[in-house]
Amino acid sequence: MSENEIRMPDTSRLIVSSSPHFHTTDSVSKIMLWVIAALLPVTAVSVWHYGLPALEVIFFCTAGCVAVEVLCARLMRRPIEINDGSALVTGLLLGLNLPPGTPIWICLVGALLAIGLGKMVFGGIGCNPFNPAIVGRVGLLIAFPQTMNTWMTGPDAYTTATPLKMLSDAHLAGQEGATNAMSEMLSQVSYGDWLLLNQHGGSIGEISALALILGGILLIALNIIRWQIPFFYILTVAVFTGLAWLSDSSLYAPPQYHLLSGGLLLGAFFMATDMVTSPVSRTGAIVFAIGCGIITCVIRLWGSYPEGVSFAILIMNALTPLIDRMTAGKPFGAPKKKGLKL
C-alpha cells in the first residue's frame, strides 16, 4: 500500500468536548410526545362521547398554551422553546381537566394562568415549582366556580352533581341524611360502565378510567414516569378511604367509588407524575405520592370542596424541594447514618 492511497483525517475541524462522547437518542421533545401519545386514548374517547364541546375545549387550551408560551418568551426575550412540546402537554392536560363545553374565553384565561403564571414567570420549562396545568385548573376553579361546576353528562345533558359532589353533599347533610343519600347514590352507579365510559358527569379527561390506565401503563413501560407515584397515590387513597368505609359504611363511600370518581386516575397517572414538579429520587416519589393520597382523601372526606386531587398535588408540589433534600441518599460507600442535614 503506497503512502498516497492512505487518506489521513483532517484535524482542522475536530470537535473537542468533555466526555462522554456517546449520548442517548432520547430528548425532552420525545418524552413530551410520548406523554401526548399516552393521553390520546382518553382524548379520543371524550371527543367521541361529548362531541364538539370537548374538542373545542381541548383545542383552545392547547393552542392557547402554545400561544401564551410564545408570547411570554418574546416578552422576556428568551429563546422560544415550544419545540420541546411541553406547552402542548400542559395545554392538553388543562383541556382534559376542564368540563366539556367550557366557554372558549375561559379556556384561554386558563391557558394564560397555566403557562403565564404557572410556568413562564418562573423562567420557563424546568423552573416551575407547580404543575402548570393544575395552576390553570385551580385558578379557573376559584375564578369561575359556577362554570367549573357544571358538567355535561352527554350531548346536551348537564348536571351540577358529579358523584363526588353528591358524596360531599351527603357528608354535609350529616349522619341522618347521609345514610339515605349514600344508599341512593350507590344504587345509581355501575362500576363497569364507569370504568369504560363515565356517564355521571365530570371533566373531559375523567371520561374513561380504562383509557387513562392504558396511557399510564404506556408511560410506565417506557420509563417516562416513575411507577411509584401512581401506584402509591392510588394505594394510599384506596387504603385511606377503605379504612373510613370500614369504620362507617353508612357515612363513607367504598374505596372503589373513590378510585373511579373524580380526577384521581388522571391526577395520579398524568398530573402528579409531572417530572419538573415531583421529587427526583424514587424514595422521594413514594413520599410525594403518599402525601398526595392523604391530602386528597382528607379534602374529599372532610373538606368543603368535593374534589381534592388538584389541591393535593399543588400542595405536594410546594413540598417537593424539601422532599428532595430529605430523601437525598448517601453516596455509594459513604459511612452510614451520615446523610444531609435538613
Partner: peptide, 28 residues
Amino acid sequence: EVSQYQSKSCIRCGRCNDTCPMQLMPGI
C-alpha cells in the same frame, strides 16, 4: 455518530439519579 446537542433546562426527570453508580443526584 457525534451527537451535537444543546444544553437545555433540567426537567428533573430523575434519569441521572437512577443511573448514577455513585448514587448522587447529578441533576440537582
